[in-house]
Design a protein around this nucleic acid. Structure first.
Lengths: 329, 329
DNA sequence: CAATTTATGCTCATCATGAGTATAACTAAT
DNA sequence: ATTAGTTATACTCATGATGAGCATAAATTG
């Protein structure tokens, strides 16, 4: 093992995607950076450097930064991914070329932030094409598809690394064909495709000629500083996938809830409508919840039974989640 | 954002779990550390520090280290997890308290290493309780279960962080009940439980009183240096999970293969036997493979059709994997 | 040729899933 | 009080996927 002399010091950033659901809408906690270089003040994820002297583990470091910046005490926390490439998703204003970022997903109950610069933002503001709860989003057919087609016709630029799929196939892989074959879990793939095609604002800052490409393109979704939107996309992908084999949702709900609230929360995360009766059958049959005996009156209709999460479901079933399949609602 | 003054420099380690399958056995590439402190020379995963000046991305850094240490040119590479806790899984001989490790999974075809200290090791040597291809491993009932029961009766030591499950429930969560409810994907959970119970050799080095606990326990599986066995467990968990919704297996197979070879490779990874006819139905019906027209004669019986992976399957199906269910074989 | 081994085709019962019908129990407006 | 609107909940039904097993084909080994 020849150890290289260049021991360039590295800084490890810890980033939190703090997700909650309020009135059927998923939110993520953002911090506005007032000292933003240009445009409107950009949203950032709560963020801080890992200092091993102060924090025994990465997760402790993350919790402490979040507490300091937002006042929130996190419950469920899960590591997502470590981003280290400087080639892309790096901004001109980035402090240090030796920054590596670890993204985290945190799930909480919704709360209005007390601090000035802390905001709850709807996550579909950042990814409008991901919300299929009311059918295929118009933006896909009207804006995204045509621009991606245009991009796919442009000659390959730069290093053509041996990708298994060509441009056309990647578009179909990510967005399906004519609203068919949509895979809700591919949030990150879609964002990275849009980035590569120069269709999101963040790509315009990137070193490549993306700026020119983007000049005539709409800004697809609200942008974030640095690579934070990519981290958020990773969080969404993870949540949508894990939802199906782990009881994640219950971290977002109060301890007592109706089946309809549970369904609407799942729909909010997965971004697709569900068949009510089948959802009920799935959940009740799956042993994930149990009736509390209490009722909720203020449903707007017939009162609903209140349920609670059965923690023992974890040991009973191999993968206790809500294996839901999208439907016509 | 109050930036703390303690800018303790961090070193980022890149670790590769390089997996291949040879004659129905999964292997992982190990490097023997001759300067190991004690016992037999410990196995390590190929490993190196990330130096941003030398490598543009983390993955490039990893590939370069692996090439240098083992001579291998990696194909498929996937990031697993970033380990940063010093409290556990840290060894006395660890160079630097400020080391953070990123684990990677790499899939290759099998090859015998040319270098002296590079070895191909069967991964079930490290995790003998994970191989259920010939029924429930005897070691579970005879050794693991009794020792875990003993551990569960000992009073909780140290900080009792609000775990959702008690010791008994965790044992059932990880190992099921009487060979039932076994979830092949929980490789990491099981290793971490055994670690916590002081039943793996690595735990004996840990600061806690694990050394005493382990003194009368068998060494469960071959051990590795530092936290490398934990990284390998993460790799196995990831592979067993991802197998079901992504065409991973084909990275381990030659371009032409028989359905039986495909099945045996899947079994090698998942560690459970499969029903031959149903597997065939699943694979052929799923559109993941296509016949090449050629035949393999040296099967030991009737010649078998040779198939190849259909790359386009990626765009056709939402999650193109081998959604196999364990069976009686 | 008989025994063995692997490949491959097909059946069948059961269960999970998607979709829809029907009814119940509440609120709000006429 | 009656009607419309809204949500809750029970059931049915067709279809498809899944687990298990039977049967046959085509090679190898003695």
């Amino acid at each position: 093992m020849t150890s290289k002399p260049q021991q360039a010091s590295i800084e490890l950033g810890l980033h939190a995607s703090i997700v909650s659901v309020h009135q059927n809408e998923p939110y993520v906690v953002c911090v506005s950076s007032p000292k933003s270089t240009s445009r409107h003040s950009a949203d950032s994820l709560p963020f801080g450097l890992f200092t091993p002297l102060a924090h025994r583990t990465l997760e402790i470091g993350l919790r402490s930064w979040v507490k300091e910046q937002t006042g929130l005490d996190l419950g469920y926390v899960e590591q997502l991914y470590t981003f280290g490439d400087r080639g892309r998703h790096a901004q001109a204003g980035d402090r240090d070329p030796h920054m590596v970022s670890i993204g985290y997903l945190a799930l909480t109950h919704h709360s209005e932030p007390s601090q000035q610069q802390v905001k709850q933002r709807r996550w579909y503001d950042f990814f409008p094409w991901e919300d299929w709860r009311n059918g295929p989003p118009a933006i896909i057919g009207k804006v995204i598809e045509p621009l991606l087609q245009e991009w796919s016709r442009r000659p390959e630029e730069g290093q053509t690394r041996k990708r298994p799929l060509g441009k056309q196939e990647r578009i179909r892989f990510c967005f399906g064909v004519k609203g068919d074959n949509w895979d809700e879990e591919k949030v990150l793939d879609r964002y990275e495709l849009l980035y590569e095609a120069g269709l999101v604002a963040e790509a315009a800052i990137d070193g490549r000629q993306a700026a020119e490409l983007w000049i005539n393109s709409p800004e697809l979704g609200r942008s974030m500083s640095h690579d934070h939107r990519r981290i958020l996309a990773t969080a969404m992908s993870r949540m949508r996938g894990k939802l199906k084999y782990r009881p994640l949702v219950f971290e977002l709900l109060p301890s007592f809830f109706t089946l309809y609230e549970l369904q609407k929360t799942v729909e909010a995360i997965s971004g697709s409508p569900l068949h009510k009766q089948n959802f009920r059958r799935l959940v009740e049959g799956g042993g994930l919840v149990e009736a509390t005996g209490e009722m909720k009156k203020s449903t707007g209709g017939r009162p609903a039974k209140l349920f609670k999460f059965r923690h023992v479901a974890l040991v009973e079933r191999p993968s206790p989640g809500l294996r839901v399949g999208a439907s016509k609602g």
